[in-house]
Nucleic acid binder design. Structure first.
Lengths: 331, 331
DNA sequence: TGGCCACCTGACAACGTTGTCACGTCCACA
DNA sequence: TGTGGACGTGACAACGTTGTCAGGTGGCCA
């Protein structure tokens, strides 16, 4: 900038004015400065600018999701990006892989970078470590999963309701041996889904078969293995409620391998690409809507809104596509 | 930091030393400073730090892909993230949606933020606007698509070869009426793929039927519409080469709607989630490998490597899964 | 012609850090 | 006891920018 000023024969401040498109610079001077900047390949330094006008925005938000390669996370990211772009805000994204340590590390890093806000799909069991940041006024919104140990804005999906709908759907079609596959119990969401599944059984005066509730699935392969095992039981499940994206895929994979895609009912939580072509009945969360709501709330907070935290719960929807409508063999 | 220094009864510089874990501070003093920092909720400001030690890294790279929600882009992002994480580098990601203007705008923004490097899956027809940045030493790697009008590192896939393999696969099974569906001709990749398809026909002493080459597909719906139209022709295609992810999906969707999934052969370019379960034969690009190579090159550049640009071309692989092995009806 | 005002422009300090260098203390050794 | 050196600490300037305020120029009106 100093060089540009010298080349244009003006002061630093005038270059600054031109660069920031501020008024108070004559046309001729402005052009001279622009020409010099162009000639010298001058590039404005946003970091320095933000430092000087401290208290202003950096134009960056941090987004911590489960795995950016996962279609659900990616969809959320995209929805946030679209909403933030109009405000000239960019996204720093990170995958947590359900790791508490990574969540902590990335949050610390993002805070050091003075992001304008944080969107977190938490991996850690408690988030009270964020207390000082909240107190300092950093906007933080939890997406998909509610925070624990702290009071913050959140936009989540009614997981219990979704699971209830899924299992009720299967019970209504006569299934009784319904397997429930979820991920690690340390994830609050998984607990909610199990709760919803139990509630559906209870409504029908039944109980979730203990041998068919299997938690702790980390990935597709694990889920596939479980399905193979369960189907080998003397009294195998006639229907499967897959508690997450990757678990649905593993379930389908295993059933396909066994040639049982047509005979065993499946309802999955979370829609996924190609689920329509695969005719998989799912509980769909409206990621685009969730992302839009998160972004809107975040923008309000960034704009200075200091009202008490709100908690938005979106109802999921069951999308029947065939796999969930397969009747039990006996019926 | 000033407050911490005052609270601990030391100078600014000493706090700096403690914060950066530099040697030359007695244990007692160090603890006093840490306690004060903790008590005052002090947060190190990386922007200011990077400004002071200018010339050092910001620990951020910019990644511009087609669409972060697209499984291919998301996979690339994830591969980059994994490789960069060990070097404590975070990713700022943006979706270009094949828009030249957005590419320019985001590049400008990222440069203002002094990212350590840029990974670009270009949307614009030419990238010579990056010339000054390259000259200034900013590491830029092109991924998936080669740069035009500029000489930079790039890691791309042999698109012509992939298309050749796909079409040759179909020709070898007796298909002659093979439809070739690609995206906009302004995308260099699409041209390459058409070229490869023609080469395969040429090898068999044939020519790509002019009425079956349809370019300019923007999304899944457009591709589906084309498939419906082509299949209504008096002499319809017996096989379809889908030149991209979304086009494959549109093709499958249309064929499913027509009940022709079992009778019309399909080979798609780019693997996609669930393609295995859908038994879709595809040309697979190894995104993880591509991402790893891009990251490795970028890290070398960031570390100061100034050797001439290299160009890595990865061979794609045909994965037979069923849809590409359907024979033509007559045969 | 003098005076007032609007309008441009520039000097300076400050944002939160850290590199450089100098100072002071303490210990070891001659 | 004096000297040298190692070590811990701090003062200061600088990174690239912009807010504040003061100064300078020119036009217009009395």
């Amino acid at each position: 900038m100093r060089d540009v000023a010298a080349a244009a024969g003006v002061s630093l401040k005038t270059v600054s004015r031109v660069v920031n498109n501020e008024p108070g610079v004559t046309g001729a001077v402005r052009e001279r400065v622009q020409a010099a900047a162009e000639r010298l390949d001058y590039r404005h330094n946003l970091a320095a600018s933000n430092l000087r006008r401290s208290g202003s925005r950096t134009g960056v938000i941090g987004v911590l999701v489960q795995d950016v390669a996962n279609s659900y996370s990616a969809g959320l990211l995209r929805a946030l990006e679209d909403a933030m772009r109009v405000h000239d805000v960019m996204l720093v994204a990170g995958s947590l892989d359900e790791t508490t340590a990574r969540e902590r590390a990335m949050v610390t890093n993002l805070i050091s970078r003075r992001v304008d806000g944080l969107v977190i799909v938490p991996a850690s069991p408690r988030q009270d470590y964020l207390e000082p940041e909240i107190r300092a006024g950093l906007p933080i919104i939890f997406a998909d999963r509610a925070p624990r140990g702290i009071d913050t804005d959140s936009v989540i999906v009614d997981n219990a309701l979704g699971a209830y709908q899924a299992v009720d759907h299967l019970l209504a079609r006569g299934h009784r041996r319904i397997a429930v596959l979820t991920d690690s119990a340390s994830i609050a969401t998984a607990d909610e889904r199990v709760r919803g599944a139990r509630a559906a059984f209870a409504k029908h005066g039944l109980e979730l078969p203990g041998d068919l509730l299997v938690r702790g699935h980390a990935d597709q392969q694990g889920a596939a293995a479980t399905v193979h095992r369960l189907r080998e039981l003397p009294d195998p499940p006639t229907a499967i409620f897959a508690g997450r994206n990757a678990i649905s895929k593993g379930t389908l994979q295993a059933l396909a391998e066994r040639g049982e895609r047509e005979s065993v009912a499946v309802v999955g939580f979370d829609d996924f690409p190609m689920a329509d072509l695969l005719q998989v009945t799912v509980i769909r969360q409206d990621v685009a809507k969730l992302g839009a709501l998160v972004a809107a709330r975040l923008l309000e907070r960034i704009a200075g809104d200091t009202t008490p935290p709100i908690r938005i719960v979106l109802p999921p929807t069951l999308i029947p596509r065939g796999s969930g409508e397969i009747p039990p063999p006996a019926a």
